[in-house]
Design a protein around this nucleic acid. Structure first.
Length: 230
DNA sequence: TACCAGGTGACTG
DNA sequence: CAGTCACATGGT
């Protein structure tokens, strides 16, 4: 949306963004969840929802004794929905949790670790086949619960990429993902930290109305330069 | 008071 | 395939 000509970033640009964010904010130590089960539930509950609202719902699930695949599977939809109320879209999300639990119960004997042990090429498609799990949620789970190098693209990532004026070959999830995946080694630790840093930067600085003064990316950001000049 | 938040699926042309 | 809409709470 900036007035300059977009250009495709090269490997140096992609690495420089990571280095600048890491230098500015330090390691983020994501995912903010304790173990694969919490990562998965959190990934579903945080869809288009602030993490603070999700935290309340996670605590409510624990307090209600609904902290297992089996419990999600067996608990009536209405009770589950009421328990996760604070995360918003609670009817839809309750259905999503139950649909995922149903898969693990039916195909993996309720053994989450066994499901997550699938190779990446099988795990990601299996997740995408679950009602309520789209590309970002699948990659959250693949990366932060299973530890595979699948780069996560979210609204924050798109916003930063767009403001930096980086040309993307389309608007689809995979188009943004390729921007990073094609220019980085497939390293889960790197992808993990990179996405966490993007979230940190977008939430604190590159907000809907950006706080460009003092931004560590200002020197290379057309949007920032344009805003500061006025 | 609107707007925003770590999206997804259903439906339409 | 791209655009539009429903889904919903809590913080600023």
């Amino acid at each position: 949306m900036n007035l300059r000509q977009d250009r495709s970033p090269n490997e140096t640009d992609i690495r420089a963004l990571y280095d600048a964010l890491l230098e500015a904010y330090g390691p983020q130590n994501w995912w903010p969840g304790d173990g694969p089960f919490e990562v998965i539930v959190g990934a579903i509950l945080t869809q288009n929802t602030s993490w603070t609202n999700v935290e309340k719902a996670l605590e409510a699930l624990k307090s209600a004794g609904l902290w297992s695949i089996g419990a999600l599977h067996e608990t009536p939809l209405d009770r589950l929905a009421g328990t996760i109320r604070s995360s918003g879209y609670y009817n839809q999300k309750a259905r999503k949790l139950k649909t995922f639990a149903e898969l693990v119960e039916a195909e993996y004997a309720g053994n989450l670790a066994r499901f997550l042990a699938l190779p990446l090429v099988d795990l990601r498609p299996e997740l995408l086949a679950v009602w309520g799990i789209g590309e970002e949620t699948a990659d959250d789970i693949v990366l932060y619960a299973a530890g595979h190098a699948s780069f996560v693209i979210d609204g924050y990532t798109r916003r930063i990429v767009d403001r930096l004026g980086w040309r993307v070959d389309g608007e689809a999830y995979g188009d943004y993902q390729a921007l990073f995946s094609d220019r980085l080694p497939a390293d889960a630790r790197l992808f993990n930290e990179y996405h966490a840093l993007i979230v940190r930067h977008a939430a604190d600085v590159c907000r809907p109305t950006p706080v460009c003064e003092g931004c560590v990316l200002l020197a290379t950001c057309p949007t920032g330069v344009e805003r500061i000049r006025r």
